[in-house]
Design a protein around this nucleic acid. Structure first.
Lengths: 343, 343
DNA sequence: CTCATCGTTGTTCACGTTCACAAGGGTGAG
DNA sequence: CTCACCCTTGTGAACGTGAACAACGATGAG
C-alpha cells in the first residue's frame, strides 16, 4: 500500500508552465504561447490551457522570464524628499502609468546630500536591472553623479529646465515663476522679494530665473533672493528675518510650504496678508486653498507629468519618437495677494 | 591563431559569473562563493575574484538568483492615498529599512473603492513574487479581500487596531484620540464634536472609538460623529455645516488636513480659533506647526513605524519572534486649543 | 608510509521561461 | 496523385545562478 508517502505534502513549489501543460495535455511551449498571446493557436486548445491555468492558480514566474529575455520590465525612480506633495504625486502617477503598461516600478531615495548616498541609490536601482530611469526632484549633484556613471539607460528627468542633453520633461518652472511675478507686478507691487529653494536644486534655480527674468523685463529693481530649504519651518524663519527690514510689499516663495511659514511669521508680526504683504507660492498642494489666507500659487499638473513621463520613457525604450516636454503651469489666484495698501 | 573573430563586438550582454570566473582563472562557483561570502576561500583567490568583478563592472543577476533560490527578496506595499503625509512617510521608512536589509520594495496603489481595484493591486504584487506584504492605510474592504484570497505570506498591517489575527503594528490610534479628547475636556470644553475619517477606514474607526471612550469615561454627552474623507476640502465643507448649529466649543478632527479645512470655515464665519472654537487634529504633519493658528495635534512617529514594520516582517520571514506592536503617540499642544470663553 | 581528514576548488544539475527550429496534418494547385 | 505550403503543436537548448556532490592537494596521526 505504501500508504501515501506525500499525499498532500507535494506543495511548496508554485505551479509552473509544465504543470499547466500536463493538465491541459499540451506542451509547455503551447502554454507559453497562450500567455503571450501568440497567433495560430486553436481556440479550443487555448481555452483548455486557460482553464488549466485558472484551476492551478498559475502565475508566470517573472524571474524566469526576465532571465531568458534579459528584460526586467521594471522602471526605476530616483527621488528625494518624497514626503512632499509634488514628488509623491509624481511617483504615484508614474507608478500607475507604468503598471498600466505592464511595467513594475522600484524607487530609491536619496538621503542627505552626500554623493555616496546618490551612488548607493543608483546602485540599488541597477541591481534591479531597471530598463529606464526617472529622476525626480533633481539636484545638480545628482546629475553630475549620473553623468559620471555613464549609464546605458533611457533616462527621463522630471522638473528640470529642459536644457540638458538627457530627455527631460517638466512643468515650465520659469514660466510659472514669471506668471507669479507678473501677477504681483500687475497688482502694483514695486518691491518684491523672492524666497528661493535650495541652491543645488534645478527646480529652485529655474524658479529664481523666472522671477529675475520677469522683474528685469518690467524694469523692476531686484534684490538677491533668499535661499531656503523648501520647509515651512524655514519660511517662518526667513519671514522673521525679512521683516526686520520690511522694505517690500510682496514675496514670491518658491513653494507652498515656505509660503505657509512666511504667512505665519507675518501674522506673528501683527501684519496682514495681503493688506501689508502679498504672498505667492508654487505647487498648489491640496491644502493651499485652505491656508489662511488661501494661497495664491502656481499649479503644476503632477499626474499629467507622471503620465507623460512614462509615455516618454517607454516610447524611448521601444523606439524613438517625438515628444512635447513642457507642460504649462497655471496661476491660481486666491486670497493671499492684493494691491499694496501703503505707498 | 584564430585571430579574434569578434574583437570588440562581443557586447550587449552584461558580464556574468562565467566572465568573471574566466578572467580570474577560477570556476563560476568560486565566484558565487565570493559573492555570498562563503567560508573556506583562500584570501588570494578571493581577492583575484573581487578584482575581476571590479574590472568587469560585474553585477549579480537578480533574476537568475531569484529563479534558482525561489526567493525574490522583495517586499510588497499595498497603499492608498499615498500623497498624504502619513502613508508617504511610512513608505519611505519601510523602503529604507528594507533596503538596509537587502530587500527591494514594490508598491501597489489602490484607487477608488471598488474591490476589483484592490484585487488588481494585490495581483500585481503577487506577480512580483513578493515575500511579505505591508498594508498601509487599511480599509475594511482591503482586509476582507485579503482574507478572501488566503495568501500564504507574512502580512503586516500598519495603523490598524491590532485586534486582527494578522500581525499588525501601529501607533495606538485609540490612545491618541483619547489624549486629544482629554486635552479638550481638561480645558473645560463640554460640548465636543468629532469629525471622523471615512467609515471604511480602520484607522478612522479607531480614532472615533478613542474619542467616544474618553467622552464616556468622563461622562460627557456625545453626538454622532461627522464622517469625512480626510481632505481639507471636506473639513471646510463640514465646518460650514456644523456652524449652522453651533452648539459646541471644540472639534476633534481625525486628521490635520480636515482640521485645516475646519479652521478655514470658522474664520470665514468671523469666528476665532481657539477663542470661539478649539480645534485638535491628528498626525502632526510638518506644516501643522505653521497653520493659523498653529495646530494642536497628535503626533505619530511614522519613521519608527516603518522601521519596526520591516523588522517585524523580516523577523517573521526568518523566524517567529516577539514584537511590541504598539507605538505610543504624543499630544502636541499648540495655538488652536484653549479654554472656552463663553459659557 | 599510509590513510583519514580538512580546506579549497571544480563539475554537474536544476530552476521556469522563451526562442529557434522541426514535425505533423490538412488544403489547394498543378 | 503529388507536392508545396500553411496552420498548429512539440522538442531541445539557453539564460545566470546556487546547491549538491566530487575531486584534489596538503596535513597530521598512527
Amino acid at each position: 500500500m505504501t500508504d501515501e508517502p506525500e499525499p498532500v505534502a507535494k506543495k511548496s513549489r508554485a505551479p509552473s508552465m509544465h504543470d499547466v501543460a500536463r493538465l491541459a495535455g499540451v506542451s509547455h511551449q503551447t502554454v507559453s504561447r497562450v500567455i503571450n498571446d501568440a497567433p495560430n493557436i486553436r481556440d479550443e486548445t487555448k481555452q483548455r490551457v486557460l482553464d488549466s491555468m485558472e484551476q492551478l492558480q498559475y502565475r508566470p514566474n517573472r524571474a524566469a522570464r526576465a532571465l531568458v529575455t534579459s528584460r526586467s520590465r521594471t522602471i526605476g525612480i530616483l527621488s528625494a524628499s518624497r514626503t512632499n506633495y509634488g514628488p509623491a504625486a509624481s511617483i504615484q502617477a508614474i507608478e500607475d502609468a507604468a503598471n498600466a503598461a505592464g511595467y513594475a516600478v522600484t524607487t530609491a531615495n536619496i538621503h542627505g546630500f552626500e554623493s555616496t548616498s546618490i551612488v548607493r541609490a543608483i546602485d540599488r536601482l541597477l541591481d534591479q536591472a531597471i530598463e529606464g530611469l526617472v529622476v525626480i526632484a533633481p539636484q545638480r549633484r545628482v546629475f553630475d553623479t549620473l553623468a559620471g556613471m555613464a549609464l546605458r539607460l533611457p533616462i527621463v528627468t522630471l522638473q528640470s529646465t529642459g536644457t540638458d542633453g538627457d530627455r527631460s520633461l517638466s512643468v515650465d518652472q520659469i514660466m510659472g515663476a514669471r506668471l507669479a511675478t507678473r501677477h504681483l507686478i500687475e497688482l502694483g507691487h514695486r518691491s518684491i522679494y523672492h524666497l528661493a529653494g535650495p541652491q543645488d536644486w534645478i527646480e529652485a534655480e529655474a524658479r529664481m530665473t523666472g522671477f529675475l527674468d520677469e522683474m528685469n523685463a518690467q524694469d523692476m529693481p531686484t534684490t538677491a533672493p533668499f535661499l531656503g530649504d523648501w520647509t515651512a519651518e524655514f519660511g517662518y524663519f526667513a519671514g522673521r528675518e525679512l521683516l526686520r527690514v520690511r522694505d517690500f510689499t510682496a514675496i514670491f516663495a518658491a513653494n507652498d510650504q515656505m509660503a505657509l511659514g512666511l504667512m505665519h511669521a507675518i501674522r506673528d508680526a501683527r501684519l496682514d496678508v495681503p493688506g501689508d504683504i502679498s504672498i505667492v507660492g508654487f505647487d498648489d498642494i491640496p491644502d493651499a486653498a485652505h491656508f489662511w489666507p488661501p494661497l495664491t500659487t502656481v499649479r503644476q499638473d503632477f499626474p499629467e507629468l507622471g503620465r507623460r513621463c512614462v509615455a516618454l520613457l517607454l516610447g524611448g525604450l521601444d523606439a524613438g519618437e517625438q515628444y512635447d516636454g513642457i507642460i504649462a503651469p497655471t496661476l491660481v489666484v486666491r486670497g493671499s495677494t492684493g494691491p499694496p495698501l501703503s505707498r
